[in-house]
Design a protein around this nucleic acid. Structure first.
Lengths: 179, 179
DNA sequence: ACGGGATGTGTACGGCCGTACATATTGCGC
DNA sequence: GCGCAATATGTACGGCCGTACACATCCCGT
């Protein structure tokens, strides 16, 4: 039974976990399904992640970092001159416009924290970090409200199947901003 | 094996399902767990609900109705004179203030619609109905934004473990209202 | 009152799950 | 090179799951 040393085994398992959640949903996540997706034996997933919660934490962290990077690349942090509401509405549009698999995955992991205490610190961390980024262009309290509104709008789009209306989002974000 | 005719069997099963989700989370919902909670044999749950999705739909509908009734009793629909933002913020406070089991249950079922197409019409229906109620005191577009903001605020409270800040909620709702 | 369809009940099967563990291989400090 | 800890692998066990099905019982139209 030949076996090679794999210094990135852990990372490959996390990547596989994200793919599994994207394809089959969080309910389809198991040590076995991840092992199959990552093409590693069952014992390998249980060795690196004693608990499914541990694996979810790693996956959620990774997806959060991915979104944060995408948000940073959209030029949001800087440019204190442009219209923040328009920028946010546009970023949301870009995010929701393409393949929604990533968005659904993000929210599914994010919302799993409702029932899994282990995930809650990660979710809270994410909210805090993002609010802090936005705080460069508005006050912290407003920043949190902007995030809340964006979350709510995303959920409405995802749950009702409605089209994303960027103008509507911009207008409502503007109202919160210019209260 | 004595067995009595039970004309409310189906309703009892739905009630049991809601209790199960409240206690063990959506992941703990199964034909067997519901049957045990409702004190009926396994075959009874599979007879009345061929699919778990069917059972979830019934449960989500019932919790939605419960919240809608609570919201109606809070006197929200009428009283076009009072401050709508304050009323909504207060209702949210009441809802979040007591036992959060009900709130978590509501959101868990609500958000399950992300991955379960069968639940999405119910979730969409709920959003539409509630927005329509609010439309009596503002325009429909603003009503949807108010709902989105309320959802986002609730999620932040539930996910970050922060205390609910009614003043903050009132202020942000006011901004959306008076934009 | 009687027959058929709706409802209730118990049991069994195969499948996926988490976990545990004995065993094999590898890396690395010494 | 040696040895020990870290890592990798395969297998097995018990548990919960959805589903199916045969059979019992009951309601209701006629």
């Amino acid at each position: 039974m030949p076996r090679r040393y794999d210094p990135e085994r852990r990372q490959r398992i996390v990547d596989a976990a994200i793919r599994v959640v994207g394809k089959k949903g969080l309910a389809g996540l198991s040590h076995r399904s991840v092992a199959a997706e990552a093409d590693v034996p069952l014992g390998s997933t249980t060795y690196h992640f004693k608990t499914l919660d541990e694996l979810m934490v790693a996956a959620l962290r990774q997806t959060n970092e991915g979104f944060a990077k995408a948000l940073a690349e959209s030029g949001l942090p800087q440019s204190t001159e442009s219209d923040l509401a328009a920028d946010l509405a546009h970023a949301l549009g870009t995010w929701l416009g393409g393949d929604r698999t990533g968005v659904e995955l993000e929210y599914e992991l994010y919302l799993a924290a409702l029932r899994r205490p282990a995930l809650r610190p990660v979710a809270a961390e994410w909210t805090e970090e993002t609010a802090e980024r936005l705080s460069h262009r508005t006050d912290p309290v407003t920043a949190r409200a902007l995030l809340a509104l964006m979350d709510g709008i995303c959920l409405q789009v995802l749950l009702t199947g409605a089209e994303y209306d960027e103008e509507y989002a911009r207008e409502m974000l503007r109202r919160v901003l210019e209260g």
